[in-house]
């Protein structure tokens, strides 16, 4: 089969790779680029463990074929901390105790990030809706919702401070 020349931006860096056109974005990230922070849980877009942000939108990377990501910008869990410093959401997940087995965590953090970029000050119900495509079997979601609230508050405060 003829390979597809996939060019996309991943976590701020442009990458060009030749891949089978039937390959999923998830496989490109994990197997070709070795970004294994993106997890596979179900392979049918139900669990959200493979969530990444594609041109600002949260997607299940198991449902995106490699050519569909061509020319686009992908953010994975590896791309949200800066120079080794954790993102506000990552820190909030630690503070709130929102991590147990951790397998849903990367996707959950990206879902929360996509939510906060649309709605910087979500209520609990909006947070629950924002992460409802991401399954967690350990936490019962309570501390995940709390973590998103914490991060939102911190980001709001920073923005307020920056505005002054």
């Amino acid at each position: 089969m003829e390979k597809f020349q996939l060019k996309m931006k991943v976590n701020g860096r442009t990458v060009t790779v030749a891949v089978e056109p039937g390959l999923r974005l998830l496989d490109v990230l994990r197997d070709v680029l070795h970004l294994t922070g993106t997890k596979e849980g179900c392979g049918e877009g139900e669990c959200g463990a493979c969530s990444v942000i594609l041109d600002g939108e949260l997607v299940d990377s198991c449902l995106v074929l490699a050519p569909q990501a061509h020319g686009k910008e992908v953010v994975t869990i590896e791309g949200i901390s800066r120079e080794g410093e954790l993102d506000a959401l990552q820190r909030a997940f630690l503070t709130a105790g929102a991590v147990q087995c951790g397998y849903c965590t990367p996707g959950m953090i990206l879902a929360a990030k996509a939510l906060l970029s649309r709605n910087p000050n979500p209520g609990r119900q909006e947070i629950a809706r924002g992460i409802s495509g991401n399954l967690c079997r350990c936490t019962g979601y309570a501390k995940i919702v709390k973590a998103v609230e914490l991060a939102a508050a911190e980001l709001q405060q920073k923005e307020g401070a920056a505005g002054v």
């Binding site: 990552q90 820190r91 991590v99 951790g102 990367p106």
Partner: peptide, 22 residues
């Protein structure tokens, strides 16, 4: 309520689960 010792690796996607081992 000490934070989890394995937390930082998990929130940054660095924890190696069975399928992640290269």
């Amino acid at each position: 309520s000490a934070p989890r010792v394995d937390g930082p690796a998990k929130v940054s996607g660095k924890s190696q689960y069975g399928a992640d081992i290269d």
